[in-house]
Simulated assay, not measured.
Amino acid sequence: MRKIILSLSVVAMSFSVVFLNSCSKDDTTPPSISLAGDASLELSLNTASWADPGATATDDEDGTVSVTSDYSSTNPNLNMTGTYTITYSATDAAGNVGTAVRTVRVKNDAEIFAGTYSVHDTCPGLVFNYTQIITVDETLNNRVHFNKFADYANNTGIYANRLANGTLEMPAQTANAIGSGSGTCAIEDHRFTGVSFTSNSTGFVLVYTDELLGSAPCTGTTQCTATFTLQ
């Protein structure tokens, strides 16, 4: 009789273990990742270096787990404007994967000048009104480009640099410009040089010289004033 009772007890205990194991929940919770530093940040184009501050991860079953990421020398690319996403991953013993992201925007510091402008351009005896699109350089910080400077049709290579004080400087530069005139002076090389820059509430005013580099009579230097109004 005692053997029967003992056998039944063993069976009952075994059943209890099986029952408890069958009722226990599987580990389906992924690790939680905490970023070191901001989840979203901006860096100036051509920043010399930037180190990812990294991240840590903890799991409710495994405790601290390791974190990997796709951060690299080109993610973010400090020499190309754009928005980059760094993805962090952590995996626990049950195979659950937790992720987190950090967004890094590499920006040109001269982007405040980017936009479409209405330009009123006055030179001695001449008045030009035209639309000007200013874009920022994707690889050189603080540089902006004019799509049609001084209203010359193919004058697309003119640029200016943003200085530390926030103003624009236009270095002397030569472009083959197609003007609206006729005769021997219709297509000539011009040298444009910025003289002064003044910002206002709606845009800015750029005074520049336009030097005609042809042979006589297609020579001479004029000073013009271009008022840029943001559309």
Rank of each mutant, 00 (worst) to 15 (best):
S89I: 03
C123N: 04
C123V: 02
T87M: 08
N129M: 10
N96P: 08
D60A: 14
G54N: 11
V67C: 09
N154R: 07
F146P: 01
N165W: 08
G82D: 06
L20H: 11
I33G: 07
D62C: 10
I158Y: 06
G166S: 08
L163H: 06
N155H: 10
T58Q: 07
N77Y: 04
S89G: 02
N21E: 09
N96W: 02
N79D: 12
L45K: 07
D137R: 04
A94C: 10
N155G: 08
E138N: 01
D92R: 00
S49E: 15
N154Y: 15
S69Q: 08
L126T: 11
S118F: 07
N77T: 00
N46A: 11
S73P: 01
A164E: 15
N46L: 03
F146G: 00
A94T: 05
N155V: 11
A48Y: 06
P76N: 06
V144G: 02
T122M: 03
S34E: 15
T116F: 00
V65H: 04
V101N: 12
G125M: 05
G125I: 09
L78M: 14
N155F: 06
F146T: 00
G95H: 03
L140D: 02
D52L: 10
N154A: 11
V65W: 05
N155T: 13
N75R: 03
V18M: 15
D60N: 15
S89Y: 10
D109L: 12
D38M: 08
D59I: 12
T47A: 12
L20E: 11
A93M: 04
G82R: 06
